[in-house]
Design a protein around this nucleic acid. Sequence first.
DNA 1: CGCTTGACGTACA
DNA 2: TTGTACGCCAAGC
Length: 110
Amino acid sequence: MDRKDSSEFFDRVWDVVAEIPFGKVTTYGHIAAHLGSKRAARTVGWALRAAAAKGLPCHRVVNRFGGLSGHAAFGGPHVMEDLLRSEGVAFTDDAVVDIKRHLWIPGEPE
DNA sequence: CGCTTGACGTACA
DNA sequence: TTGTACGCCAAGC
């Protein structure tokens, strides 16, 4: 709607993150691209940091490689990984999600 | 008030 | 092809 706040970008990121289904993950680039700017991935990361404080499932958001970049925002280096594993998400490496199996794209549900 | 950094990714040389 | 630079937006210092 008429959300023309300075943080409109943030609000959209939170909206998308909140729509991520259980056991799925998405990437900064896909969110940024969905918002209109692919290179805004960095800003998405900033929004996710705030999203963590908002209670959004930001642990389902990973980088392009499927690596858990924001584990520090969870208060523990393996908290994010453990959360995803609890959702049935597979890991290809340590703290690296099998994004190829669980990738979810905003605007394009199952 | 202004410069730098920051949960990344793409584009160009 | 690989490497480097830039872009996005906001917060921190």
